[in-house]
Lab assay of single mutants.
Amino acid sequence: KHLIERYYHQLTEGCGNEACTNEFCASCPTFLRMDNNAAAIKALELYKINAKLCDPH
């Protein structure tokens, strides 16, 4: 559950690194913003595939 919350935060708030290159992070310049419901679904999907989590900045 904690990991899913981290994915959700990364998708909605980002890691804080303006030069982030993680396509699944709101801080990445090319990230496409999504609403909270879509972010919750995506967080579950990312958890299932063990996607990369950013280190908070």
Score class of each variant (00 low, 15 high):
Asp35Gly: 10
Gly14Arg: 00
Ile4Glu: 11
Arg6Gly: 09
Leu53Ser: 07
Glu45Gln: 06
Pro56Asn: 07
Leu46Val: 09
Thr12Tyr: 08
Tyr8Arg: 14
Pro29Arg: 09
Gly14Tyr: 00
Ala43Gln: 02
Glu5His: 10
Cys20Trp: 00
Ala51Pro: 03
Asp35Glu: 11
Tyr8Trp: 05
Ser27Trp: 01
Asp55Val: 12
His9Ala: 13
Thr30Ile: 10
Tyr8Phe: 06
Leu53Phe: 10
Leu11Met: 06
Asn50Val: 05
Pro29Asn: 03
Asn22Cys: 02
Asn36His: 05
Pro56Phe: 15
Ala26Ile: 07
Thr21Phe: 12
Glu45Met: 05
Asn50Met: 08
Phe24Tyr: 11
Ser27Ala: 08
Ile41Gln: 15
Cys15Ile: 00
Tyr47His: 15
Leu32Ala: 13
Cys25Glu: 01
Leu46Tyr: 03
Arg6Cys: 03
His57Cys: 15
Leu3Asn: 09
Arg6Lys: 14
Tyr47Glu: 15
Glu13Ile: 10
Lys42His: 07
Gly16Asn: 09
Asn36Tyr: 03
Ser27Arg: 05
Ala40Gln: 12
Cys28Glu: 06
Arg6Glu: 08
His2Ile: 15
Tyr8Thr: 15
Ala43Arg: 01
Ile41Ser: 14
His9Pro: 01
Thr21Asn: 15
Asn37Ala: 14
Lys1Gly: 02
Leu46Pro: 02
Asn37Phe: 02
Asn37Pro: 07
Glu13Pro: 00
Arg6Phe: 06
Phe31Ile: 05
Phe24Lys: 10
Ser27Glu: 02
Asn17Ala: 13
His57Ile: 02
Asp55Leu: 11
Pro29Glu: 14
Leu3Arg: 08
Thr12Gln: 08
Phe24Ile: 11
Thr12His: 05
Thr12Ala: 06
Thr12Val: 11
Lys48Cys: 02
Ala26Thr: 03
Ile41His: 15
Leu11Glu: 01
Pro56Cys: 10
Cys28Ser: 09
Asn36Leu: 12
Ala26His: 05
His9Gly: 12
Met34His: 07
Ile4Leu: 05
Ala38His: 04
Leu11Asn: 01
Thr12Met: 14
Ala40Gly: 14
Thr21Arg: 10
Gly16Asp: 10
Phe31Cys: 10
Ile4Pro: 07
Lys48Pro: 04
Cys15Gly: 00
Leu32Met: 15
Phe24Gly: 09
Phe24Ser: 11
Cys54Tyr: 00
Ala26Leu: 06
Gly14Ile: 00
His2Leu: 13
Ala43Met: 03
Glu23Phe: 08
Glu45Cys: 03
Arg33Lys: 14
Lys48Ser: 05
Leu3Thr: 14
